[in-house]
């Protein structure tokens, strides 16, 4: 299984499956990873999308994709994927489609769909063991409609619907849903988190996932310069800081068995990651909100402590 594992970014295929010149925002962390995901998946795929930032990518014929593209209603991308998968299987069985011409079915959504409105459809597809890939570009809010909070929004983030002010000095009051664990509870064959700062890890995870039939899910932390209020040229650096501080955990789970693929030797304090972003600026200015910062740090510490045990 390790025959196709790569060791360095030099081993990443040079062939591009997503053309340059997309309408995505400058420094979109989702697009950085998507480029690598599609390198790993190859050309023979059909992308099933539900409303989100990436819906803007493909306005045919101005599409950056070499593959086909299907749009579904917001709540049911995995159900759309099931329809395609089943139809392809029927065609292969009837001899109307050669097995080598088969397509990989790839659901591509944002966190709004993956964490909120589309969760029932995802659960159904996992339950029915549909053979598909799911890539969730998680920028931790509804970026496409003006950065409103989603189930993926982390504690203390400022968004359009969790404004910071007199009434609420913190912004988002709830913790991010643990989508990885929601999915893992269904025991799919393959499940992973990925980051644009770790393309080698990303490619290897896709390579590994290829060996499994059934739902294969990938959650990407997507730095979002307009929403996070960050410098577009810092997206990869920010994504790396998220991993180095232990906030974004790079891991995989095969049939529910978790393995951490990147464990920082020395964890940086979460502050380093938060300070870079306008959405967390209120934690530092005008008054430093020590309690909130401690809460975020201890949440991260607790996770890693539990892992070690």
């Amino acid at each position: 299984m390790s025959d196709s594992t790569i060791k360095s970014i030099r081993d990443i295929p040079s062939h591009e499956n997503i053309y340059p010149g997309t309408p995505a925002c400058a420094g979109c962390g989702g697009l950085l990873s998507l480029r690598h995901c599609l390198k790993a998946l190859g050309e023979n795929i059909v992308i099933v999308n539900a409303a989100g930032c990436f819906t803007l990518l493909s306005v045919y014929p101005y599409t950056p994709f070499r593959s086909s593209w299907l749009y579904t209603a917001m709540a049911c991308a995995p159900a759309g994927a099931q329809g395609i998968r089943d139809a392809l299987d029927v065609l292969i069985k009837k001899g109307k489609l050669l097995p080598e011409e088969d397509l990989k079915v790839v659901v591509l959504t944002g966190d709004g769909v993956a964490y909120d409105i589309g969760l029932a459809s995802t659960s159904g597809a996992l339950y029915r063991n549909v053979d598909f890939y799911y890539i969730c570009s998680d920028n931790e809010a509804y970026g496409n409609t003006g950065f409103q909070a989603s189930g993926a929004t982390p504690f203390a983030s400022k968004t359009g619907t969790t404004p910071v002010g007199e009434m609420n000095p913190l912004g988002e009051l709830f913790y991010k849903k643990d989508l990885f664990e929601i999915w893992r509870s269904h025991k799919p064959p393959y499940l992973a988190t990925i980051s644009p700062s770790h393309p080698v890890d990303l490619i290897n995870k896709f390579e590994k996932a290829k060996h499994y039939k059934g739902p294969k899910l990938f959650i990407n932390l997507s730095p979002c310069p307009p929403g996070w209020n960050t410098d577009p040229s810092h997206s990869a650096k920010l994504a790396k800081l998220a991993v180095d501080t232990g906030i974004w955990v790079l891991k995989e789970a095969v049939y529910g068995e978790i393995r951490h693929t990147v464990i920082p030797r020395k964890f940086k304090p979460v502050e380093v990651y938060l300070k870079e972003q306008g959405r967390f600026a209120h934690l530092f200015k005008p008054v430093r909100q020590e309690d909130a910062l401690c809460q975020i740090q201890s949440f991260v510490d607790r996770y890693w402590k539990e892992i070690q045990n």
Binding site: G146, Q148, G160, T161
Partner: peptide, 23 residues
């Protein structure tokens, strides 16, 4: 879109309980 500004505005009004739901 194009109704989001309503919830964006309402979250700033103290007297109103505003919820953003999953769908």
């Amino acid at each position: 879109t194009p109704a989001s500004e309503i919830i964006n505005d309402l979250v700033n009004r103290k007297q109103i309980k505003v919820l953003q739901m999953e769908d």
